[in-house]
Amino acid sequence: MFLLLWGIILPLAAQETEPPVALTYQSSLVGIGRAKVYDSYLSPLSYSGTHIGFLFEQMKQTGLCEKKIFAQHQLNATFADAKNPAGTAEDYAGALTYNYGLYYRFPEIKRFQFFAGGQIGGLFGMLYNSRNGNNPVDVKADFSFNLSGIAAYRMQIKQQLVNLRYQINVLVAGGLLSPEYGQSYYEIGLGEGGSYAYFASLHNRIAINQLLSVEFPFQICTLRFSFSHRFYQTNINDLQTQLIDRAIYIGLSRNFYTVRGKQSTSNHYRYVFE
């Protein structure tokens, strides 16, 4: 066991015959980094600035496929304040992203773990340019099916346990909302008909999120550092968007189980990343 157990009192009277208790992994992090914002509806120029974010992850074993399927919730809230190259105008970009994924866990090989699966999720966000009059905002709303993979490796440096993990999500297909090329929000406000929803796939949307994490379990907590790199790019109706951010996140992780009905007497625990 290399991760710390939080928030529960473990039964001391162990029964060796009881199956191990499946623990839920949960982590909350905050991050800061750099963002690059380009949206041709707002400006022909690429903006750059500061990115801040909050990341929540939860992952646990399910009863599917002989308990080899794991479910993951990912919630990411981000905000960026970026300036144009001359520093005379600002873009504010905010987004909320949620993904629910199911993963197959392959058998462990020499401390390496691999998970592969898919996610469904969505993004809702907004880009606001402080200088524009009738075209100040570009609303971003999309949903997608993602391919996702996780690789985890645990090691020990002297007396310190260290857990490395890498996750990649690739948005494959879904849909998104977009105004037409030169359509104003005044027209949209009039209730102008037309199609604002578009099928999105790799031909018009490339979005890849990568997360490289390292965790240090200590006596009182598990400290997690992550490097996040998100790439989101769309080209709909000749309106082009490219959002790139790279950030360092720091936070805490824990493993726990929730008691439902009769409490297990087992003192064996199965971690998501073990």
């Binding site: 022909p44 009738n134 359509q183």
Partner: peptide, 19 residues
């Protein structure tokens, strides 16, 4: 013409009839 805004690399703003 309903005006939109844009900008130049040097930071100057331009407004123009769009709709």
């Amino acid at each position: 013409g309903l005006p939109f805004n844009s900008e130049l690399p040097n930071g100057w703003s331009v407004r123009f009839s769009a709709c």
